[in-house]
Design a protein around this nucleic acid. Structure first.
Lengths: 187, 187
DNA sequence: CGATTTATATACAGACCTGTCTGTTTTGTC
DNA sequence: GACAAAACAGACAGGTCTGTATATAAATCG
């Protein structure tokens, strides 16, 4: 299999980046954890930054697919699906290996806005916003853009508070607040 | 002056940590930028982590003092002061050197919840929440704790969106959303 | 089977990291 | 001016980092 080594490398790298950060995770640790030789890695990725980008891309796919699949399975109406976002966050926060949003963390380490890693994080947030906006529009909100912005802020805030303050109920607080916004938007 | 070197070191370190991150900022760079000798630094701080803690402590003081002074000068009623928080955030986001919340960034690099650096970030957030809670109580909100939580989530979300997505209007979106929460809380 | 790709182990370069050590110079105070 | 505290410069140790080079072994495929 041509890409199995590559896939395994990306999975291992993503796990270590999430747990220990990007600068703190050296190439050698990723190689040792994955059992892949250094030259193999540098054949697939021409630098560490490219490996980071690949790991972020995988994380984006995993996160959004998991979110959408879970929500569309558990809730049927747009309104219920909006609220299900916060239940999904709650499940995520409760996982033992929770270390916050990897994209927020990446932005912390690569603050320059023209950095490709920072740009990848921005793109992820844009896609998440798009999903929320689709839901607020489908729900028939008065101002779907304003509502989607408010919901997105609550969700991001909950992720931050869950990680920084270890407040696992941040998702519950966000959900209860979201209900106020929904009522105001006529949803 | 006994502590002027120490102060200068902390200021320089804080600036570099904010701009480039914690792991990416080496001791040598801080020393070169501050013009302080290495042994002087290690006389004041027994490790880099202690310097980081001192820098975070200074940032906490600077941020909260700046926030409270500005708000109490510009707004008089509890309600206006709550909304002034978001104006303050807007001014902050608009600054050229804006690199997000240093405490969120620190948590990204020091994810373990028992890490003293992570704990310092949690304490900062706790103090900020306390300030917001005092305002919601003074404003006579129906459920001041719930309102303060909602407002705090909006504020944290705005900081994240402003940094990750470069969305400078995140503070405006948060403010408009906050007004909905205030109305709901009878403020 | 033979040829080509793919992955392996390992050593290396050059830079950077934190923290220590030694000795000198500056500074502040009596 | 004498003395002590503070800051200085700069070398050093021991480790880590990214990325490259080399030479060998395994797997794939016509």
């Amino acid at each position: 299999m041509a890409s199995s080594k590559r896939d395994h490398l990306v999975d291992t790298a993503l796990d270590l980046f999430c747990r220990h950060g990007f600068h703190a995770t050296g190439i050698d640790k990723i190689l040792a954890a994955s059992g892949v030789a250094k030259m193999t890695m540098y054949k697939h990725f021409k630098s560490k930054d490219e490996l980071i980008l690949a790991a972020l891309h995988r994380n984006d796919e995993k996160f959004r697919n998991g979110l959408m699949r879970d929500i569309e399975r558990k809730a049927k109406t747009p309104r219920d699906r909006i609220l299900a976002i916060f239940d999904y966050l709650g499940d995520w926060f409760a996982k033992s290996g929770f270390t916050g949003c990897t994209f927020i963390n990446a932005t912390a380490e690569y603050a320059a806005s023209d950095n490709p890693i920072h740009a990848a994080a921005a793109e992820h947030k844009r896609l998440i916003y798009g999903y929320i906006f689709d839901l607020t529009k489908a729900a028939g909100a008065k101002d779907p853009d304003a509502l989607a912005n408010g919901l997105a802020l609550l969700a991001e805030g909950a992720v931050v508070m869950a990680h920084v303050s270890g407040n696992k109920d941040a998702s519950g607080q966000a959900k209860r607040t979201a209900e106020i916004l929904l009522a105001d938007a006529g949803v």
